[in-house]
């Protein structure tokens, strides 16, 4: 079930500006791979290239190879929509559909593109919300508006929505940056649980978070202001945080810059 990414020579542009340059790394199945680096280092851009969301912005494009299930998602024959169906995503700010109920948000992935859920609807909703650690809190008010939930609950609802359609990989773009510390811890616990079944790519500006939940960590950096982000190094999280190979990684994790 869990899949992997093999990224090679990936570059992405916003108009004429190069945002990430020549990035190659692999994302292993059933692991949490964290992307860390200062603002502007291209972490978000990189993760948004992994489900081809990047190219939807006006003037944005990407080049290179991202192999998912043996297929390059940037191959001409591959439809971006089918890529996005196979790769789930959770964003910085919780973004449930504002006019939909908790229930409808959970199954939005099916409703949106008219896919028939394989199992019973009730079962899918319960499974997704349980996996997102939200079921006990909302089971009695599934028809309430999603916007009636707290920020942390909304974010877990967005996680439920992403995993309800059983993606192969889950992308998380700073999922805790808009949440308080308690809600953040809940999401981190959740990430550890989800790793059992999913491959996760986690963008975070919070190094402690990467240290807590990630199996592997990649450090990105655009050295001078305006430089595109490049991969400096990737390795087991413990190694990155204790014996980084690159001086710049060491500088960043010890707080000398960034």
């Amino acid at each position: 079930m869990a899949a992997s990414f093999e990224i090679s020579n990936l570059s992405a542009w916003y108009g004429k500006r190069l945002a990430i340059e020549d990035i190659s790394l692999s994302v292993e199945p059933n692991q949490v791979t964290a992307l860390i680096g200062p603002s502007g280092s291209g972490k978000s851009t990189l993760v948004r290239c992994l489900n081809r969301l990047h190219e939807l912005l006006p003037g944005a494009r990407a080049e290179g190879k991202v192999i998912l299930d043996g297929e390059n998602i940037y191959d001409d024959a591959v439809d971006a929509v089918s890529v996005r169906r196979a790769v789930g995503m959770v964003f910085q700010r919780p973004n449930p559909f504002p006019t939909m109920s908790i229930l409808d948000n959970t199954i939005a992935g099916f409703k949106l593109n008219g896919r028939k859920p394989k199992a019973e609807l009730q079962e899918i909703v319960e499974r997704a919300l349980t996996a997102a650690g939200l079921w006990d809190e909302v089971k009695d008010r599934l028809s309430a508006a999603a916007t009636s939930l707290s920020g942390g609950q909304q974010q877990r609802l967005c996680i439920a929505r992403a995993i309800a359609v059983q993606p192969e990989i889950l992308l998380m773009d700073e999922p805790c940056s808009a949440l308080d510390p308690v809600a953040t811890l809940r999401i981190e616990d959740l990430i550890m649980e989800l790793r059992e079944r999913y491959t996760i790519v986690l963008v975070t500006h919070n190094m402690q978070q990467a240290a807590r939940v990630a199996d592997r960590t990649a450090f990105l950096l655009g050295e001078l202001a305006g430089d595109p982000g490049r991969l400096i190094e990737i390795g087991p999280t413990k190694k990155i945080f204790t014996q980084p190979e690159d001086k710049r990684t060491e500088g960043y994790i010890t707080g000398r810059f960034g």
Binding site: N51, L53, V81, R84, R85, N95, A108, G109, N113, R161
Partner: peptide, 13 residues
Amino acid sequence: QDVREAAFALGAT
């Protein structure tokens, strides 16, 4: 824009 991206990320046309 968040809401649009939510839909696209779920594989909406």
